[in-house]
């Protein structure tokens, strides 16, 4: 079984889907000949030719807008936008068309397409390379938003995204692109979009997180375990549609909820999850719902980033606070 890191798993999934389905095309800035600035599309052009994997001009609105036309006309575009912060020039296409075509045409035109890009901070990069914009996409009806946290999940989720009949925003936490390796089965498998994963069972507290924060959360949980505290950790895998069942079920069991997100605190995915818990499991709560997130400021350049990124220590503190509420 191949042992791959996260970015290799992206490449592996793309490779297999391109092999399986000739309508899959992959393109983006530097995504063709060079194989992407993170090497996610490496070897694809060589293997499948320039008609199926190609470079584009620097034109995010163009990339996404053209993908809409291609998806309508029989292809399955999987486009790469170079960084999270460079999705913004494509927002007009994403909001005005990608998310709406099915509804607008009452099902006549559908968009089986994937927009994938590296997301999140913590790599000491220039401005606009460190953003966590998942909620900007999640707030748009008609989109699905996926963010894997392991190589195994990456392959299963990306495969599912490519096969999905609707547009999927596939966010790749770049901080953990090469952080660790894992066995990734060669055989065909998909991980269902919309289903969360309980990565650690526990009874004292439910922690919901996703992407690169899963690793940091598990680190904090390890510390908590030493104090005899056993949180349950849910990796969302899919941000929209949210796996409401998994969250509610767990909170009913633990009576406590903490959401860990890398993005800024206000108006975020965490806010949505906590609203959901309040609506559906209010009477089960033994402590106020809590969040660990970045402060509501613009991502600092690297010399200030350490003050911004949520870290295991903050998560650990919050775990204690929630568990010790009123005791």
């Amino acid at each position: 079984m191949p042992v791959l890191n996260n970015v290799q798993a992206v490449n592996y999934a793309l490779m297999q889907e391109m092999e399986r389905d000739p309508s899959v095309v992959v393109f983006g800035e530097d995504a063709g000949y060079e194989g992407g600035v993170f090497r996610a599309t490496v070897d694809l052009q060589e293997k499948f030719g320039v008609e199926r994997c190609f470079d584009t001009p620097i034109s995010e609105s163009g990339i996404v807008g053209a993908a809409v036309g291609m998806a309508i006309n029989g292809l399955k575009p999987v486009v790469e936008l170079q960084f999270c912060g460079f999705t913004y020039p494509a927002f007009n296409q994403i909001i005005s068309h990608v998310s709406r075509m099915r509804n607008r045409s009452r099902g006549r035109f559908t968009l089986p397409m994937v927009i994938r890009f590296p997301s999140g901070g913590g790599i000491r990069a220039l401005e606009h390379h460190s953003e966590s914009p998942e909620v900007l996409f999640a707030h748009i009806p008609g989109l699905k938003i996926v963010m894997p946290s392991t190589p195994y999940d990456t392959k299963g989720l990306l495969t599912a995204a490519i096969r999905d009949p609707d547009p999927v925003i596939f966010m790749e936490p770049k901080r953990i692109y090469r952080a660790f390796k894992q066995e990734v089965p060669e055989e065909d498998y998909v991980i269902e979009i919309g289903k969360a994963n309980v990565v650690k069972e526990g009874e004292d507290l439910t922690i919901v997180t996703w992407g690169a924060m899963v690793k940091d959360t598990l680190k904090a949980v390890e510390e908590a375990n030493k104090k005899g505290i056993f949180p349950e950790v849910i990796d969302l895998r899919t941000i929209a549609p949210l796996d409401r069942e998994a969250i509610i079920q767990s909170v009913k069991k633990t009576g406590r909820i903490l959401v860990v997100q890398e993005a800024v605190k206000s108006f975020g995915v965490a806010s949505e999850i906590i609203a959901l818990v309040n609506e559906k499991a209010f009477l089960h709560l033994e402590a106020p719902p809590a969040r660990v997130a970045a402060p509501d400021i613009i991502v600092p350049l690297p010399r200030g980033e350490q003050y911004y990124m949520p870290n295991p220590d903050m998560i650990y503190e919050k775990i204690l606070e929630v568990v010790n509420f009123l005791t």
Binding site: S266, P295, D296, P300, Y308
Partner: peptide, 24 residues
């Protein structure tokens, strides 16, 4: 050349909002 902690909060608006004051 290290970033001063205060500076990452100080320049978001002319004046820090109450929420930012609290987070700061």
């Amino acid at each position: 050349g290290n970033t001063q902690f205060d500076d990452i909060f100080k320049y978001q608006y002319e004046k820090m909002t109450p929420l930012l004051e609290e987070q700061y």
